[in-house]
Amino acid sequence: MKLPKQIVYTLLLISLIIPLVLGISMEIKPTLPVINFYNALNKLHSGNFVIVSLSYDPSTKAELTPMLKTLTYHLLKRGIIPVFMNLKNIAIGDLGYKVVKTIGEDLNKKENKDFYYLGYAPGDNMAVQKMGEDFFKVYDHNFHGDLLDKYEIHDKIKVLKDFKYLIDISDGNSTIDYLTYVNTKYKVPMIAGVTAVMASEYYPYIQSKQLLGLLGGLRGAAEYETLLDINGDARKGMSAQTFAHILILFLIILGNIEFFYFRKKRKNGNAD
């Protein structure tokens, strides 16, 4: 017996729409990598600079923008000064700026004082190397084209090592590149938020303490929101996610029962 794929898609759609429309929320227990991510940022003091690399594009916005929102809120609320940059992906520039600007305005924080948005710079790993020697050789102006030498960042930061952390929000291989160049070479501590597909790839780096904390996919973002007591996009999404997972599990079990039942029947038929 074969279940038509249209029925499977419809069931999946229903399982996702119902919790989203009804606004069902579930308790999410934070895991150790997320708690470590949160604690790493709580160790910083007001006025410390951190660099946040936005290494994703709109195709993974659903997973990574909730992380960016919560991270920006967390940093600005604590008075830590995030410097948002983008060396790996051109497409996130405007999208990321909109998110950061909105949260900054909500918290009455000023751009180029409480946070900096630098946008995209070409050069990839070569640019990272250059930033290790002279940060302003890569970024001499911000996202809007204003020169950075008139702002506080120019006095406080000279090289990558002057940042307390590098935080990579990534959907590609940028985290491993930063681990190689920024963490190993320039000894800047790192934490990261990555898509769920990549999360299992980065767990060995938590074990070795090369990554001090990790947010994995929407689940990681939801756990981070729980720690900050925010009912954001990720927590709302995780309820729908849970319903979909229950449906998928149910369909897998159903498929297996069907497989074993008919296999037994076929065997009996052959024996007869």
């Binding site: 999946l12 759609l13 729409i17 769920a196 597909v197 996610q241 997972h245």
Partner: peptide, 23 residues
């Protein structure tokens, strides 16, 4: 299995975002 499970979660997260936009 862990990678596959995470992949399913990632794809559903993308679908959730699309459904939220439509809703």
């Amino acid at each position: 299995g862990a990678s596959f499970g995470y992949t399913i979660m990632a794809r559903i997260s993308l679908l959730i975002e699309v459904i939220k936009t439509v809703i």
